[in-house]
Design a binder for these strands. Structure first.
Ligand SMILES: [Zn+2]
Ligand SMILES: [Zn+2]
Ligand SMILES: [Zn+2]
Ligand SMILES: [Zn+2]
Lengths: 170, 170
DNA sequence: ACAATTTAAGTTATACTATAACAAAACATA
DNA sequence: TATGTTTTGTTATAGTATAACTTAAATTGT
């Protein structure tokens, strides 16, 4: 079996994920002379509280707790900024947002989303990209933006899913 | 140049597209002993008025004109049925729906969506599917549902886009 | 044909997601 | 410090989708 991405490793050191994400964000914004304001950094940190996509409205209570305004525009503005900087991606099929594990080079992710635990992996996916580009090129279509979102069962949940089906059968 | 799908052929006989879509729908529903009621058939016909994805709320006025109830649940129920029968697909990135040009065998489309004219092609896309399946299999992820939506410029609009950029430059 | 059951449609209300528009505050630059 | 720019606060509203219950129509079995 190949090495699993951290998203699919329940016991991994997630504090490290958070720390690295924030560190990369600070570095990138600094390089680009973009302002990673307290609200923006907090939203990024909240997005990284897990490897599960979060809806914008799920972030509002935490923003309020931290003493910020927590009307929808606040969180959407922060998310817009983070998306523009490539620090988070939007998952269209879930109306939700997830942190990008390798921000920097502009890219659009290819996401594997577990319908049971919600844990989501962002693939590099060169073969997928190539296949799409070839198909598009064949029709003379010029690609500007790609959305690739795959829902299913992660390795961990296949086990629990089998277990619960078995329990039902008993 | 390869043969373009009808979606990207402005002058094609679209009445034929509509007629074929309705014919296939009647046949499939009949075979499956599913009821293609007047509302459902009308919604399918409205969806097929073009090759552009349409939002649910864009269908409501036409439903009212035809003398049906036109509250949101009416159109969403019809769309749910049509999706379940594989007669229409939902485009998650647009919150919109489009007719399936080859209903019957269960499948999830790979869509090329023109951001200028909205015309949308559903590809067969075996290579794309394979690439996704390989990547997923490599991680032990079991696929249940795929969303592949590509936004860009269709061959026709590349021309007009170039023209308008040129006009701006003058 | 009739009653019982299932499926679909009508209706009202509401949840969820996202943005418009304008005012106030903070920041950057000179 | 004065000036222009960017960010945040605030209120309102647009856009998308579903819950819950009622009525009507179609299907099934007798
Ligand atoms: Zn982690
Ligand atoms: Zn990414
Ligand atoms: Zn057509
Ligand atoms: Zn299709």
């Amino acid at each position: 079996m190949s090495k699993q991405p951290l998203s699919f490793q329940p016991g991994h050191n997630h504090d490290r994920c958070i720390h690295e994400a924030l560190h990369k964000a600070r570095t990138l914004c600094s390089e680009r002379k973009q302002r990673l304001t307290p609200i923006r950094e907090l939203v990024l940190q909240l997005i990284w509280q897990s490897h599960k996509p979060l809806g914008a409205y799920e972030l509002l209570p935490a923003l309020a707790d931290a003493g910020f305004n927590s009307a929808p525009p606040t969180v959407y503005r922060a998310l817009d900024f983070l998306q523009a900087q490539g620090l988070v991606h939007r998952i269209a099929s879930l109306n939700a947002f997830i942190g990008c594990p390798h921000p920097g080079p502009a890219h659009q992710g290819c996401f594997l989303i577990c319908r049971s635990c919600s844990c989501t992996v962002e693939l590099e996916s060169a073969p997928v990209q190539n296949a799409i580009h070839n198909s598009a090129a064949h029709l003379g279509f010029v690609i500007e933006q790609e959305t690739v979102e795959v829902v299913g069962l992660c390795p961990n949940c296949q086990q629990s899913d089998a277990n619960s089906l078995q329990r039902e059968a008993e």
